[in-house]
């Protein structure tokens, strides 16, 4: 999923000091606020981002607080742990059964996921809304 850019002026590797290779992503994009700055340099190992050069205080917190750890269960159904497959089946069932389902949110996600959300609302015959309408 993650590719080091092959272009000579972006992407290099360093050492984090604890033996693991640090990956450097240049011109990364921060989606914390609407500015969507795309000049951030991220230094990361396999688990966390150590440095977010050029990011503001909010952006730094955003990048450094997310990790690749498995902190939460894959899925919950009625508060009990479940597999993603089971959760997807349950989600599809409840949305399909509804007479007037609502698809809402879409702020902190990618355009690719947003397109799937529009397709979902279209397929369901439901309501579709974003943060904007608040």
């Amino acid at each position: 999923m993650i590719k080091e850019s092959s272009s000579p002026n972006s992407g290099s590797s360093g050492n984090s000091g604890n033996g693991t290779e640090l990956k450097i992503v240049k011109n990364a994009t921060c989606t914390f606020c609407g500015c969507v700055c795309d000049d951030i340099e991220l230094h990361a190992d396999d688990v966390r981002i150590h440095k977010a050069v050029k990011a503001c205080v909010l952006g730094k917190a955003w990048f450094l607080n997310h990790t690749a750890e498995r902190k939460y269960p894959d899925a919950l159904i009625d508060g009990k742990e479940a597999t993603v497959d089971e959760a997807i089946e349950a989600a599809a069932y409840h949305l399909y059964k509804a007479d007037m389902p609502l698809v809402y949110g879409m702020s902190n996600t990618t355009c690719e996921a947003q397109k799937e959300c529009v397709a979902l609302a279209d397929q369901l015959g439901g309501l579709l809304d974003s943060h904007t309408s608040l």
Binding site: G34, V118, H131, T132
Partner: peptide
């Protein structure tokens, strides 16, 4: 615009449905 990609949602809904938010496909 505030958080993250709220603009993307707005823009995509406009080109796929004609409207920016508050939509019904009933």
């Amino acid at each position: 615009r505030g958080h993250g990609n709220v603009t993307g949602a707005d823009v995509i809904m406009r080109w796929q449905t004609g409207y920016p938010f508050g939509i019904s496909f009933n």
